[in-house]
Amino acid sequence: MNKLLVSPSPHIHSKTSTRSLMLDVVIALLPSVLVTVLFYGWSAVAILASSVVFCVLLEYLITRYLLKKPSTIGDMSAVVTGIILALNLPPTAPWWVAMIGAIVAIGVTKMTFGGLGQNVFNPAITGRVFLLISFPAIMTTWGGAKGFIGGADAVSGATPLGIVKEGLMQGQTLQQIFDLHDFSYAQMLFVNIGGSAGEISAIAIIIGFIYLLARKVIRPYITLSILVTVAVFSGIFWLIDPSQYTDPLFNLLTGGVLLGSVFMATDYVTSPMSDKGGIIFGVGIGIITMLIRYFGSYPEGMSFAILIMNSTVPLINKFCKQKKFGRA
């Protein structure tokens, strides 16, 4: 002891840091990553690895050489973006798709606004939407990948949502479509071949959700309000006409609703701060998702819904403040 340190109070700090929070998100993503790798095999490993590597490398290069600042990759946020981006891509997508996604996600969406904490839109989703619009063929072709388990027949044409949309457009009723394709809820819950890498196992995502809640990384309001809204919205339409509108459970388990509501809508930077704001945000996402699914031309609307609601976050933050102590 030579010189006494002097600083304003408080003198201790909780153990939580940006890095530890991001690490928790990575851990929560692991079950989904594991399932993806098991069922899509080497191609899933390739897309995950290339997406993460490109995201981290890009952030490093931009901070060091373009902004000439100390690198920020130590906070792990680029890793999270990389994994989420990869889980949003078809496992059979070529590596350069991941690279373009990383450029849009990290380069355009995140770093141009000033890096972590400054971006308006969720980087991974923006990357995914950019790819979906630019390369619709690649982004909607699934199958052809050989998994480590589950045999060689991991081949499928389209996602359940895509099949339903297609069928309805051709004038089939839901009953006919379901009879034809034999969707099972159990399959959707555990492993549902056909879909973006991260969409295939609902249970893996739910495990991640529970982990995040237990570690107090996120609060449940955004996720639950999205799920409830999707269920209620689809429930009403399903009751009106079960031959045209898919049922609530089908809507919850298919597509990116679970992945999006647990990992992407809850992104700190692009979601409201207060619980009340989070509920409004979640309801908005739920409604927009279902509007696109039922009435839009895309089979799936989760990404668009999150992006649209991202843009309303500053407004929600302004009007939804928590109650202050001693003020009516």
Binding site: K3, L4, L5, V6, S7, P8
Partner: peptide, 21 residues
């Protein structure tokens, strides 16, 4: 110097806290 400051880099904050280093 007899002390070391460990807070936000601001004379205002430092002055409100103590005599200086």
């Amino acid at each position: 110097t007899v002390n070391e400051y460990d807070g936000i880099k601001s004379c205002k904050v430092k002055a409100a806290l103590y005599s200086g280093d």
